[in-house]
Nucleic acid binder design. Sequence first.
DNA 1: GTTAGCATGTAAGGAGTTACATGATTTT
DNA 2: AAAATCATGTAACTCCTTACATGCTAAC
Lengths: 194, 194
Amino acid sequence: MARRGDTIELAVLGLLHEGPMHGYELRKRLNLMLGWGRVLSYGSLYPALKKMLRANLITEVSTATTPTSRRPRIVYEVTPAGTEQFQRLMSEVGPTAWEDDNFDIRFAFFSSTDMEIRLRVLEGRRSRLQERLARVQAELARTQAEVDRYAGELQRHGVESVEREVRWLSDLIRAERGDEDPATAPATKPVGSD
Amino acid sequence: MARRGDTIELAVLGLLHEGPMHGYELRKRLNLMLGWGRVLSYGSLYPALKKMLRANLITEVSTATTPTSRRPRIVYEVTPAGTEQFQRLMSEVGPTAWEDDNFDIRFAFFSSTDMEIRLRVLEGRRSRLQERLARVQAELARTQAEVDRYAGELQRHGVESVEREVRWLSDLIRAERGDEDPATAPATKPVGSD
DNA sequence: GTTAGCATGTAAGGAGTTACATGATTTT
DNA sequence: AAAATCATGTAACTCCTTACATGCTAAC
């Protein structure tokens, strides 16, 4: 089953499917990808790569040939076992899949899965957010009178943001079900209306 | 200096300023407050309370009197030292203050600080987000052609969300500088236009 | 030639989750 | 009477960050 820490593994496998890469580059790509929040450190990436090597999910490819001089950079490649594991993790639909970080990673690699999985992940994520929304709004209704200005404003903003995200997900779900070509007719507004 | 883990401490001190509370209740309030993301567990709250007791930031008040029978629930109260520490942490303006979680907590307790601090925190947070935005958009412009559909859509949505947050902050900053009454004339739209 | 960025790693430690353990009280 | 929820705690463990350590290479 997917533990929390498999996030890096999934991300690495996903990225390496776009082609061989070395650690430093992986880190940059990952930080750009989930850049809104934590930044991945070497201290967690390199050990993770070692672990994946041992598990035979990836292999070292011959050090990349920079014409002038080959400095020691280790390029990694996915093994067949790695591809299998990637597919397995991607199709694992469950609570861990709709956590913030896990969802983002999965979404970013949606192209590598089929529509059935995509829909289940999107819908799972949406209902999770809707649950939270309902719970908070219920609680908010109960204690409405007593809230502090700023605390209240924060709540309002939070609720609005989540509602926005729900709409985004709904658009994506509709696109998945309707179009063949989801991300081309994007979420909120037609192209060029910006 | 404020370490990462002082988040709970700050939150507890802030909440206890609204009145004495026991652990279970603190946890509920906190989870509602930062509910969009991680949920605080007992395993981190209770040890934190113990630590704060030892540091003399809070004290146990006599077990709350439920008329029928007083079950063993431990109600905490802030000490003068705790109030001092709270003020100190709140006015500590620095990188840690504009991290997601830390910012939220600080914002929620803005009423307990003066405008000067509020402005510095809001502006600090805003420039941090703008930096990230600029960096990502630069990177995005460089690699635009090669991005995958879904990965691209995720980026777009991320950028939009952050831009929204920047606007929210700008409105709050304007309100702080202009009005006396910031959160009453709220961010995006006038009351009742919802 | 020296600074800035590329590139890889390790060791120690922090912060918090999970799972366990226990018992009272309220609701059904 | 059982189930749910209130209420408090502890121990083991996981994941990750920080800080350290090293050396190459490109730009200025």
